[in-house]
């Protein structure tokens, strides 16, 4: 596998990650969201491995493995169990309709491309072109958190955002130091548990996981 092929493969993977980010925005069913999320994690881990191979940085293999176990297996499993236990309504509700969301998404991709243009000029990594995709993934994750109503989908949006950050780190600087990555991974895992506990609490308090119910928490005038 030569370097140019690795670069091509990496850009294909970047395109797939972007596609899954849009898929998360468009998907209506909550289990479908989980599958797309797992797929995104898988692409991310393969991409990390490819970058690690082509740049000769072997600690990226560990990151890739970590991503694979955590984001493709463990987190989706936890969320699956959560959704199952909580008996969450399967249709995802969104605030903005899907075509508009897609158009906003396209605008965000163009904007991130515009933003990363100066960095692209400076960098000479083979991964420099994927930085825009990484930034776009972050923004799309944030967009997903904004437009969705249910708490679980917001978690998935948050995790997608984290995927984007991870991808950005890989493409801009060939990954963060291993210690940081391990720390982040642990954080995510713990966050998922805490979210789970919160969900149970929210549901026992409000009898729903719809975040609209939280609007009651403001002070009455």
């Amino acid at each position: 596998m030569n370097v140019s092929f690795a670069a091509q493969l990496n850009s294909v993977l970047a395109a797939l990650i972007l596609l899954t980010a849009f898929g998360l925005l468009a998907q209506r069913r909550i289990y479908g969201l989980l599958h797309i999320f797992a797929l995104q994690g898988f692409f991310l881990s393969v991409s990390t491995a490819v970058v690690g191979y082509s740049a000769g940085l072997h600690h990226l293999y560990i990151s890739a493995l970590l991503t694979l176990t955590l984001k493709v297996i463990v987190l989706p499993y936890i969320l699956y169990v959560l959704i199952h236990r909580l008996r969450i309504h399967k249709e995802v509700e969104e605030v903005v309709n899907i075509p508009t969301t897609m158009l906003i998404g396209i605008a965000l991709v163009i904007y991130s491309y515009h933003l990363t243009a100066p960095i692209r000029e400076l960098s000479d990594f083979i991964t420099r072109s994927t930085l825009a995709v990484a930034l776009a993934t972050v923004m799309l994750g944030l967009l997903m958190m904004i437009i969705r109503k249910k708490a679980v989908t917001q978690i998935i949006g948050f995790l997608a955002l984290e995927n984007g950050l991870f991808f950005a780190a890989t493409s801009a600087t060939y990954g963060m130091p291993l210690v940081v990555e391990l720390g982040v991974a642990l954080d995510i895992l713990i966050a998922a548990f805490i979210f789970g506990i919160f969900f149970f609490q929210i549901r026992t308090t409000f009898d729903t996981l719809d975040l609209k119910a939280m609007e009651k928490l403001k002070e009455e005038e």
Binding site: L18, L19, F22, I98, P99, M102, I106, V109, A132
Partner: peptide, 23 residues
């Protein structure tokens, strides 16, 4: 059908974007 073809438009646009961004 609008959503179906809307996703076709999305794919085509992503193709255009990824040409400029990734290639």
């Amino acid at each position: 059908v609008p959503e179906f073809l809307g996703s076709a438009f999305l794919f085509a646009t992503l193709g255009m974007l990824s040409y400029f961004i990734l290639e």
